[in-house]
């Protein structure tokens, strides 16, 4: 029983830490964007504007919980819950330090893929339930985008699985003691990162909510905390992809001198910042360009990477 209590405690601690860091990330992103775009960003509330997060949260909580009368009510409420819970569940298999994934599944990587493929429903159902043409268009686009990028995300990851000989994230990290996978699996790393950006629909792949043509895409009708949940879900996605980059290609918790969990945090933070920098630096492609790039360029590359890895290992 005591063991069970420890697991529950760990899960709650992880949950709290994740939601808090996702909230902090909203502040960090705006400050960094400000820095790179030669302006200040939020700096009024508290030291360095740190309390901006609290102010935003209060504002979102204080807003009226509005469900449009033409919406499909149960589905409308379900969608943001899916967005957040699938992302949070996926963190259960991430090994933050030796022996500290919440659930040390043998098929950890497949569990992540399953959760990320279920996350599509949040956007799809949000768009459908809003009963609004912008929302519908946004969610149709996004479903097509996420489905196609998922295909070669899986294919790129298989290269890593082949090399490590296991789906378990802990064993994948252990297999990188000699050499981080970012060198032998360089192509897979690039592909995974691109697909990861598309999966968490961040700029430059944020077409589902391209504000210049679709107002706000699938969450046009959302307000208050339901919008907040979509928002937090997106930032959780960024953290998730960053921590997977760390785990799969950059040796996870491995590193000299510093304690393992700190190495993990530092590496993950680096990729989170890279996400923000990409947003500041890159323009958004057209929708057909995005799809053509995925199917005609990235998919063959992923297949090539898989074949070469298999041949080398054989």
């Amino acid at each position: 029983m005591a063991e069970f209590a420890v697991i529950i405690f760990r899960a709650l601690a992880l949950l709290l830490a994740l939601v808090l860091s996702a909230a902090l990330l909203t502040w960090a992103e705006r400050r960094l964007l400000g820095l790179w775009q030669d302006r200040y960003g939020p700096n009024r509330v508290g030291p360095f504007g740190l309390l901006q997060v609290v102010a935003d949260m209060l504002k979102l909580l204080g807003k009226q919980e509005f469900v449009p009368p033409f919406a499909d009510k149960p589905v409308f409420i379900l969608a943001p819950a899916i967005a957040m819970s699938t992302m949070l569940l996926a963190f259960a298999v991430i090994p933050f330090a030796p022996g500290f994934p919440l659930a040390d599944l043998n098929l950890g990587l497949l569990f992540f893929l399953a959760m990320s493929s279920l996350a599509v429903y949040a956007i799809l159902l949000g768009g459908y339930a809003s009963n609004n043409k912008y929302a519908l268009l946004g969610s149709l686009r996004s479903a097509a985008q996420v489905l196609s990028y998922e295909v070669f995300m899986g294919l790129a990851l298989l290269g890593v699985v082949l090399q490590a000989g296991s789906f378990s994230l802990g064993q994948i990290v252990e297999a990188q003691r000699e050499l981080w996978f970012c060198i032998p699996q360089f192509l897979a790393m690039v592909l995974f990162f691109i697909a990861g950006i598309a999966e968490s629909h961040r700029l430059p792949f944020d077409l589902p909510e391209a504000e210049h043509e679709l107002t706000a895409g699938f969450h046009t009708e959302y307000s208050g905390m339901k919008f907040g949940m979509f928002f937090v879900g997106e930032y959780l996605g960024v953290i998730l992809i960053s921590s997977l980059m760390t785990t799969l290609f950059f040796g996870g918790w491995l590193g000299p001198v510093l304690p393992p969990w700190l190495w993990f945090l530092l590496k993950t933070l680096f990729f989170v910042l890279l996400f923000v920098l990409l947003r500041a630096a890159l323009p958004r492609p057209r929708y057909d360009q995005l799809m053509a790039f995925g199917w005609k360029c990235l998919l063959p590359l992923a297949l090539l990477n898989l074949t070469v890895t298999a041949l080398v290992l054989l």
Partner: peptide
């Protein structure tokens, strides 16, 4: 059968059903 379970979620729930919802939405 954890592998079958993972495939069930990834392929059926995560891909095929998405396409069906997609069509019905349209």
């Amino acid at each position: 059968a954890p592998f079958a379970a993972a495939l069930e979620v990834i392929v059926y729930a995560g891909a095929i059903m998405v396409l069906m919802v997609f069509v019905i939405m349209m």
